[in-house]
């Protein structure tokens, strides 16, 4: 069974982190990241060719993490695989002992290093959640054919409270819950005010009773990174107050300022009703996750 699920079932505030597989076939990169994260988090998301850049497969990296005693969350995007391959991978992942799946659309192929690739998008992320849920709970694939054994997986989806149109963001969340999502990990939260409005709407619809919502955070390494995310990453909401705070810190201590903002954000997220945990996406900064979790007062992790 998923350790991540059991932490949430116990009612503990869950902590997940992210591990990006290497641009190569070297398993040691994963082993090192596993060492850094072990004991600091409940589960680790393994990204699936994020930003459409070719990397070691998410499933392979999940198996490597599992061997190191971590509970991996397999990220799977619909960009690269049709419904045949997606369903097949879910069965394979379950057979290999992967107990958490995060169903995603995926960054568009034009952003990565294979812009000439065909984008598949045979299912969308919501349909994908529903397909996995039916495989698990009804033991059947799309179309109804029975499986010899159903996959045993905890099903997740993403949500971006900062995309437009705002009123439809809750519809998307509600659809993901109706499709069978057990947990939700959100886009990076810098605009807490907007996130809290989104959560209030989720509570009003009764969605927080049905799904575990983990707030996403990304520590800022520099003022430049904050500005880049604000300007260049669509659907990322970095308020001017955050930019000013990062700008106000001397260059040498900007990373520390970024960590402070992140710790404060986590502490505030713990107070938001319906938030069941935090998902830390420390981009190329996995060695800081342990300290961040400690400073946020989230250690030790439950067994």
């Amino acid at each position: 069974m998923s350790r991540f699920k059991s932490v949430l079932d116990q009612g503990a505030f869950a902590v997940t982190a992210e591990c990006g597989p290497p641009k190569g076939a070297d398993p040691d990169v994963i082993m090192k990241k596993a060492e850094l994260l072990k004991g600091k988090v409940d589960a680790v998301n393994v990204t699936d060719n994020q930003t459409a850049v070719v990397r070691m497969s998410s499933l392979a990296a999940c198996v490597l993490l599992k061997r190191q005693g971590l509970d991996p969350i397999l990220q799977a995007v619909v960009r690269d695989r049709n419904r045949i391959a997606l369903q097949s991978d879910i069965l394979g992942a379950s057979a290999l002992g992967i107990r958490n799946i995060l169903c995603l659309s995926g960054d568009h192929q034009s952003f990565g290093n294979q812009p000439q690739a065909l984008g598949v998008f045979d299912l969308d992320s919501i349909q994908f959640v529903q397909v996995v849920q039916r495989m698990r709970d009804q033991g059947a694939i799309l179309g109804g054919e029975r499986l010899s054994r159903a996959p045993d997986v905890f099903i997740g989806a993403a949500a971006n409270p900062f995309g437009d149109p705002f009123n439809f963001r809750l519809v998307r969340l509600a659809k993901k819950v109706a499709a069978g999502a057990d947990f939700i990990q959100t886009q990076c939260i810098y605009n807490l005010e907007r996130f809290e409005r989104w959560m209030a709407m989720a509570r009003e619809r009764g969605l927080t009773e049905k799904v575990h919502i983990l707030g996403g955070v990304t520590p800022l390494k520099s003022a430049g990174m904050a500005k880049y995310m604000k300007k260049k990453v669509a659907g990322m909401d970095v308020p001017d107050g955050i930019i000013r705070r990062m700008d106000g810190a001397p260059a040498k201590t900007q990373a520390e300022e970024g960590l402070k903002i992140c710790v404060e954000t986590i502490q505030r997220l713990r107070e938001v009703r319906g938030v069941k945990g935090v998902h830390i996406m420390a981009i190329d900064w996995e060695d800081m996750v342990g300290e961040l979790v400690e400073r946020a007062g989230l250690l030790p992790r439950p067994n």
Binding site: S105, F162, D164, A234, G235
Partner: peptide, 12 residues
């Protein structure tokens, strides 16, 4: 992305 169930998170 040929999405049939609403906009992705990048709609701004």
């Amino acid at each position: 992305k040929h999405l049939l169930n609403g906009p992705c998170g990048g709609s701004v």
